[in-house]
Computed example of a mutant assay.
Amino acid sequence: MPEDKSEERKGSLGRAISELLAPVAGFGVTFSNMFRPAVTEQYPFVKTPTAPRYHGRHQLNRYPDGLEKCIGCELCAWACPADAIFVEGGDNTPDGQYSPGERYGRVYQINYLRCIFCGLCIEACPTRALTMSNDFELAGPTREGLIFTKEDLLAPLKEGMLAAPHPMVEGTVDDDYYRGDVEGPSAEQVAWVERERPQDPTLEAAREAAR
């Protein structure tokens, strides 16, 4: 019994010493950082590059011929845990072909007041239509301005792309687009746009790409 009491006293003494030195250990961290040089970000005058896989503003992508990748399936909206995405699909028609296949995203909105930038919408997208850019400057003066529409999210047309709507490349099906077999606009697509929208500003570059 005396030995048990001795061990108990030693344990109590050790705990008391540990509790006494705990603040000293905390101050040790404080003092060690007091003498390190300060790191001040000079934002917005000097902008530090983001990580390559940074989750920033979303972007709706296009195929090389200019058709949109979004097929209006709404899987991104279903996957969003913050209910920040609203999609309304529409039917493609011979005079209004915006994406390969039967459907396209007629309405697309992302509410950046709700978005938590988790990237689950990107994982859910079956056509890689939706990706995330490195753009993080999303502040604005109004709440309405932080609800981005399809026009805000669509990727700009690259050189040689033909603005939609226009038919798919002749002789292809939607699977050819998904596999990456379409590499640019065709002469038939250019001719269709020349007939329907002769003043389209993307025609000249598309003619060169279709040769």
Rank of each mutant, 00 (worst) to 15 (best):
F27S: 14
P52D: 00
I71W: 02
G28V: 04
L75D: 15
G72I: 06
F117L: 10
Q199W: 06
E183W: 02
R62M: 02
T93N: 08
D4C: 00
V46T: 15
C73S: 02
G28H: 07
C70V: 05
G11P: 07
A25I: 11
R195N: 10
G28D: 10
A129Q: 05
P23M: 05
F31Q: 12
A124S: 10
R195G: 09
P141Q: 10
Q97Y: 01
P198C: 02
D4A: 12
E68D: 13
W192M: 03
F136M: 14
G184D: 04
E3R: 12
R128N: 15
A129G: 08
P49W: 04
E102T: 15
C70R: 04
A205H: 08
E159K: 12
K5C: 12
A164S: 11
T142L: 03
E19M: 09
D83F: 09
G180L: 05
H58L: 14
K158I: 01
V39E: 15
T172I: 03
S12W: 11
P185L: 03
E183H: 02
C76K: 07
S6F: 10
R9G: 09
S32P: 00
L130D: 07
S186I: 08
C115D: 07
V182L: 02
P165V: 04
D152A: 04
C121E: 02
L157N: 08
L153G: 00
A191D: 11
L67M: 02
R179H: 08
M168R: 02
I116F: 05
E196A: 10
M168Y: 01
G101P: 09
S18C: 08
T149K: 14
Q59G: 06
D4K: 10
I85P: 03
P198S: 04
T202V: 04
F27K: 12
R195V: 01
V24P: 06
T142Q: 09
C70I: 00
T202M: 00
C118V: 02
R36C: 09
A163C: 01
G140N: 14
E74N: 11
L203A: 03
T30M: 14
L162Y: 02
S32F: 12
I147G: 06
A16F: 14
E7R: 14
Y43Q: 11
V173R: 11
R197T: 00
V24Y: 13
V87L: 09
